[in-house]
């Protein structure tokens, strides 16, 4: 028994709907292009950060991408967590604590791979602890991760001895030579390892989102937790894993940051959670869960970093908080207004 064609057509029926769908999927590339165009038109050579005027000048792009490495590393995992309907406000402190651990290990003679590996494990543990609080103790994610935000920051501050603000060369210990090559030295196309690791992580997460059980189950958990559980999905395990992955990404971000700055600063991740929220909002991730793409968040991170750095050269640094706050509110409002999910009353 065949059914009438028009009303039962597959996916977006009308032309208008198709255009809307296209816009929703690709708007971010337009935004990125627009940002690049605007910044390249600006005359930037008055400012220190840029060597020559044009934004598109190679060295400037390299600088921007080097500095962006932490946020780029974090964006993907944070997105997947939000897709599952959960949030992690402690990423900044995880980053700071990982930075300190990494620097401590390095300055005490631990070789690169070992220090790298250990720090990643620490990050996983910190993330897993978040998962424990949320899944096992059933503390609401906002409060649970605010608790760990404070706790991890405290741990990081304690690891740095009094009187010093960060782990760095001095007092008889010297930071090894290899320390900042990870975050500074160009290995491919002039870009450092930290950037390429960020790219690699993003690629892995994009594949995971599209092709793995974790990606699919994350969307199910965020989209309709009841349906997910009824299908036999262990939503607690999924969420726990996602928190762990966020922890590892935050640790990688911390390594990138401390390598770039050549020191382990416990406060180096402060405000990262706000950047991450901004990034995922721009990338079209919904707070209620189910919606969100890793790749779009990556682009969103590029946009944010380009704007931030570009802005730093145009206006004094003290405008930054205001702009981020305004951007956050604007992004939240537009995100919500074009959100697909209708909220129940």
């Amino acid at each position: 028994m065949m059914s009438p064609s028009s009303t039962l057509a597959h996916s977006a029926a009308t032309r208008a709907e198709q255009i809307a769908q296209f816009l929703r999927n690709y708007y971010i590339y337009f935004v990125l292009a627009a940002v690049v165009v605007v910044l390249s038109l600006a005359n930037l050579d008055r400012f220190d950060l840029f060597e020559r005027g044009n934004f598109l000048y190679e060295r400037n792009i390299i600088n921007i991408l080097r500095v962006s490495a932490p946020l780029l590393t974090l964006a993907g995992a944070f997105t997947l967590l939000m897709v599952s309907g959960y949030i992690d406000l402690s990423v900044g402190s995880t980053m700071g604590l990982s930075a300190v651990v990494y620097a401590l290990l390095a300055i005490n003679g631990v070789p690169f791979l070992a220090a790298f590996g250990i720090t990643m494990v620490v990050g996983a543990g910190l993330g897993a602890f978040n998962g424990l609080l949320v899944v096992r103790f059933k503390i609401t994610p906002v409060i649970a991760t605010l608790i760990t935000l404070s706790f991890y920051k405290g741990l990081a501050l304690l690891l740095v001895q009094d009187g010093v603000s960060a782990i760095k060369s001095g007092g008889g210990l010297k930071m090894p030579e290899w320390f900042n090559s990870y975050g500074r030295e160009g290995v491919l196309l002039g870009l450092p390892m930290s950037f390429w690791i960020a790219v690699a992580v993003t690629v892995v997460l994009v594949i995971a989102q599209n092709r793995s059980l974790l990606g699919k189950y994350a969307a199910a958990t965020g989209g309709n937790p009841t349906a997910a559980k009824l299908s036999g999905i262990n939503t607690g395990k999924i969420v726990f894993l996602l928190y762990g992955i966020v922890g590892v990404s935050a640790a990688l971000a911390g390594i990138a940051r401390s390598s770039f700055m050549s020191l382990g600063d416990p406060l180096s991740g402060d405000g990262m959670e706000l950047n991450a929220i901004l990034v995922v909002l721009i990338g079209g991730t919904a707070f209620s869960g189910g919606e969100g793409r890793v790749l779009r968040s990556f682009i969103g991170a590029l946009i944010i970093m380009a704007l931030t750095i570009g802005m730093l050269t145009i206006v004094p640094a003290y405008f930054q908080t205001l702009v981020i706050g305004a951007a956050l509110l604007t992004a939240a409002a537009s995100n919500h207004l074009i959100s697909r999910k209708e909220s129940a009353s």
Binding site: S212, A220, N224, A227, S231
Partner: peptide, 27 residues
């Protein structure tokens, strides 16, 4: 009466939800 489908996934993904074949976690 309450629908137990995940809106954000495709029809095929919903149909196979929880029953997928996977290797090392990859579909």
């Amino acid at each position: 009466q309450e629908l137990h489908v995940v809106d954000e996934l495709t029809v095929l993904e919903n149909l196979t939800l929880g029953m997928e074949q996977s290797r090392f976690g990859f579909l």
